[in-house]
């Protein structure tokens, strides 16, 4: 198990290096330091101001190779900063990137945690419900509904939700965010609802399959023979035994709670980490973008390893070699 974990960590490290290299290449293929300076200073800024910006932000070093001082290139600086977690300041407004991360994580979590927990409860209870009535028209209608829900793009849910629920029915604000406890709820209901609508189809289908498989097992027949009702069988026995696949999914998803939801945050004007990523792309803000990508890849690797480990904890038959 330890050998396995070490090996996975080594793979993970290589993956992160690859991601960082790829990001560097992609970014500087697309943008030059002059483009970044222009974006930061505006269209009217004279050439001297652009040059000054480039010097002030240390982008005047060569990209890959500096014959005078091999250590002073943008790529060396890029790796040094990321691998030592020295994130520096944003290219767009000189704010410490760590400060922006700290500010963004709260709004992100206040959206992703209810979405995650709510999604879990809604999909599991709906899946249990349709699994209870399997092979009836309720089940078949459920399948149709789920497949339909899975096929529609999340953008349609967002725009449709904003139009129908916020504009026509006027139940919630169209967009926005305010962390004060009095109003935070009303901003979150609609994005959470839209997020649920976009994801429940796939989840319900998955859990239903798991539950239906479980309902054919011997212990279910035993429980019924002993006089258990449908509700107790499904919510007590089946749900508990279906925990392994559920845990796998859940653990894999947890790291991404921190990276926020790019589309939902962007359309609902929630100033979370997803918005920061989008803004960094729009603003040619390499310093912030690379941190978001770097952290995203780290979290992905952590999630993968944690899932593997959870397998062994939840099911003693699984061994990591």
């Amino acid at each position: 198990m330890i050998a396995y974990t070490v090996r996975r960590l080594a793979y993970g490290f290589a993956t992160v290096l690859g991601v960082l290299t790829f990001l560097f290449a992609l970014f500087f293929l697309y943008a030059t330091p002059e483009d970044m300076a222009r974006r930061a200073l505006g269209e009217k800024a004279p050439p001297q101001a652009l040059e000054q910006w480039i010097v002030n932000h240390d982008y005047h070093h060569p990209l890959l190779w500096n014959p005078d001082n091999p250590g002073q290139t943008l790529i060396v600086d890029h790796f040094r900063r990321m691998l030592t977690f020295d994130f520096g300041r944003s290219d767009a407004d000189d704010v410490l990137v760590t400060r922006r991360l700290r500010k963004g994580v709260g709004p992100s979590l206040s959206l992703t945690v209810p979405l995650f927990v709510g999604g879990l409860f809604v999909s599991i209870s709906l899946a249990l419900f349709v699994a209870t009535f399997r092979e009836t028209y309720i089940d078949r209608a459920g399948v149709a509904l789920c497949v339909f829900a899975m096929s529609v793009s999340i953008l349609l849910y967002i725009i449709g939700g904003q139009f129908l629920i916020a504009r026509v029915l006027r139940w919630f604000p169209i967009s926005g965010f305010d962390p004060s406890p009095e109003v935070i709820g009303r901003f979150l209901v609609l994005p959470v609802f839209v997020g649920l609508a976009a994801s429940f189809g796939e989840q319900v289908r998955f859990y239903r399959t798991v539950f239906v498989e479980e309902t054919n097992r011997d212990y279910v027949r035993t429980a019924r023979a002993k006089g258990c009702g449908d509700g107790r069988v499904m919510w007590h026995h089946v749900l508990r035994n279906a925990m392994i696949p559920i845990i796998t999914r859940v653990v894999l998803a947890i790291p991404f709670l921190f990276t926020g939801s790019i589309l939902l945050e962007s359309f609902f004007a929630i100033p979370g980490l997803g918005s920061i990523t989008v803004d960094a792309i729009h603003e040619n803000d390499f310093a912030t973008l690379r941190v978001m990508v770097f952290l995203g890849s780290l979290l992905f690797i952590v999630g993968q390893i944690a899932t593997d480990i959870c397998y062994t904890l939840a099911d003693p038959r699984v061994r990591l070699e």
């Binding site: 169209i174 967009s175 926005g176 359309f267 004007a269 918005s275 989008v278």
Partner: peptide
């Protein structure tokens, strides 16, 4: 107030916000 997207911002204007 910062609106990432223009359409929600305009709709809020129509609602008087």
């Amino acid at each position: 107030v910062f609106e990432n997207e223009q359409i929600p911002g305009f709709n809020k204007f129509l609602q008087g916000y």
